[in-house]
């Protein structure tokens, strides 16, 4: 079965690339919080819950929204849209934030809105809530970006008719170092014609995901 990457998004350092187009660039490297806020605002995503998310969810959410802007989910059953994401550091940045709230016995105020984000799959929940995706979903951990793992997992979902479309990618944040890559995968025929973009779909393969990831 032929599957295609009909759009992709890269978020890293000081820039954002969507379908080979540089859509955001800052000369100076910003702190992650300022950077992602600037990308969110420029992307006109308009979703106030964004501000309540932890850093890793903001990263994954923005990378997902920018891919989804380039594609149409019309005609797809919400239960047949999957989300498969991965990273290396799980929710470590937020784990450390939660840990700070319980370090001191005299200032012991664990915060539910921090704690809830100490799971890597919460970003999947945020993406699903915004877009009403209800299909297969999983968060995988690997030491570094593993295109083969993602490809095989997602490929199986299509192969056995579990999904008709899937958001797939890597959303890594550790300290102020971050790197996100999302791709929208569909069967042949479900291309991004409606968005009217000139991007030519790539075959969904581990090799092509590595090519996208190594984009400069």
């Amino acid at each position: 079965m032929d599957l295609y990457i009909t759009s992709y998004c890269l978020v890293r350092d000081n820039r954002v690339v969507v379908n080979d187009r540089l859509v955001f660039y800052q000369e100076n490297i910003l702190k992650f919080a300022d950077f992602i806020k600037a990308v969110y605002q420029q992307g006109q995503i308009n979703y106030p819950k964004f501000y309540k998310m932890d850093a890793i969810s903001k990263l994954g959410f923005v990378a997902a929204e920018l891919v989804l802007k380039e594609t149409s989910t019309e005609g797809l059953d919400s239960g047949a849209i999957g989300v498969v994401l991965s990273n290396a550091s799980s929710s470590l940045v937020t784990d450390i934030a939660h840990n700070e709230t319980i370090k001191d016995r005299n200032g012991y105020f664990p915060s539910p809105s921090v704690f809830v984000y100490t799971l890597p799959n919460i970003v999947i929940g945020e993406i699903c809530i915004k877009n009403h995706f209800k299909g297969e979903n999983v968060f995988l951990i690997s030491e570094s970006f593993n295109a083969r793992l993602l490809h095989d997992y997602v490929g199986e979902l299509f192969e056995n008719g579990r999904v008709d479309a899937c958001l797939c990618g890597w959303t890594e944040l550790n300290g102020d170092i971050f790197n996100a890559m999302t791709v929208w995968v569909t069967r042949a025929g479900f291309t991004n014609s409606e968005a009217g973009q000139s991007y030519r779909p790539l075959l969904f393969s581990a090799e092509n995901m590595n090519v996208i990831m190594s984009h400069n």
């Binding site: 919400s78 989300v83 809830v116 699903c128 209800k134 297969e136 579990r162």
Partner: peptide
Amino acid sequence: AATTNDANHISGPSRTGAELAE
């Protein structure tokens, strides 16, 4: 085996159970 997502809330479960049922 199958997984689904409620697409409802990050900590509160679905109000209807429809997604688990699915």
